[in-house]
């Protein structure tokens, strides 16, 4: 990959040039990339937790990727990418010093105002922990924001657990109630095995004074949102991060239309009351 891509003059529809300054394999096929703006003159905006960027793998194509970390240094972003197709494959193959294009940040993030003084229940599945990581870090950094924070995380297997060190830190240093479960494991695994929603009855929260933040595969989010509603949370206190095939990222092209919403512009974060019925519509 060319280390000096010829991309200048970034706008919402034109990528800016970025360089991979650090890369960490989370596990096979999934990597976290630390990106730095290549040209100081290109505009840069801080991202909010839950927002996403369009990453351009040079010569391959663009993909929407949520921010998995929010560095304070201007000109920097952090993303976590899982190899799932040609574009994400090219992105995960990037090495330190390689270049790529980036548009963004885009979209509506997690509701930071809504978590204040609440019992926050974070429910994540698989790579869905990545878009939640920035708001968990925000809550970990200032433990006074929320009344309590529980992080429930489900993964396919013990070797597919994302951000293991962060999960430990949130549990041990930030005082969060962090619970991890996997779908299947060898007998050496000492943790829980089962669906992530089975952890919900085991945590303490005040249903009428709680907020649920959910991200993962859509089928898992549907069941998790239903479980949180069954636990007594109103639909408007349940927030989901939606994913569709985003192209323009600014609400023009219509690729990510979801009922009356464009996920790129009106989302990707939605309260459950706004999208519950649409979630049940097939082929959307």
């Amino acid at each position: 990959m060319d280390a000096s891509p010829d991309i200048v003059g970034a706008t919402a529809t034109t990528p800016a040039s970025y360089t991979v300054v650090n890369k960490r394999w989370e596990f096979n096929g999934t990597a976290t990339l630390h990106l730095a703006r290549a040209c100081e003159k290109d505009s840069w905006s801080p991202a909010a937790p839950g927002q996403f960027a369009m990453l351009y793998a040079l010569g391959v194509g663009e993909a929407a990727i949520s921010f998995s970390g929010l560095p304070e240094t201007p000109g920097r972003y952090v993303v976590t990418v899982r190899r799932a197709g040609a574009i994400s494959d090219a992105l995960t193959r990037l090495k330190r010093g390689d270049g790529l294009g980036l548009r963004g940040p885009f979209g509506v993030g997690w509701p930071l105002d809504s978590v204040k003084n609440k019992d926050v229940v974070v429910v994540a599945g698989g790579l869905g922990l990545a878009p939640l990581r920035p708001i968990i870090e925000y809550l970990a950094h200032d433990r006074g924001v929320a009344n309590s924070v529980s992080v429930l995380y489900g993964a396919r297997s013990p070797d597919a657990i994302l951000f293991e060190r962060d999960l430990s830190r949130w549990r041990n240093d930030a005082g969060m109630n962090v619970r991890v479960t996997v779908d299947a494991a060898a007998s050496a695994w000492r943790g829980d095995v089962g669906l992530v929603t089975t952890l919900i009855p085991e945590i303490e929260f005040r249903p009428k004074n709680s907020v649920a933040l959910i991200c993962g595969p859509e089928i898992m989010m549907r069941f998790a949102a239903e479980a949180m509603e069954d636990a007594g949370l109103p639909q408007k206190a349940i927030w989901l991060s939606m994913e569709r095939n985003m192209k323009c990222a600014v609400g023009f092209c219509g690729h990510c239309q979801f009922g009356s919403y464009f996920i790129c512009k009106n989302g990707p974060i939605f309260s459950y009351d706004r999208i519950r019925d649409t979630l049940l519509v097939r082929e959307l």
Partner: peptide, 28 residues
């Protein structure tokens, strides 16, 4: 019923995970 529902969702393998097979890249 709860256990059956959970088992069915687990069967769907919705999370995905480390790629099975294909080109393996060495960790940096």
């Amino acid at each position: 019923m709860r256990r059956l529902k959970a088992a069915r969702i687990q069967m769907m393998d919705v999370y995905g995970g480390p790629t099975d097979g294909g080109v393996l890249e060495s960790a940096e």
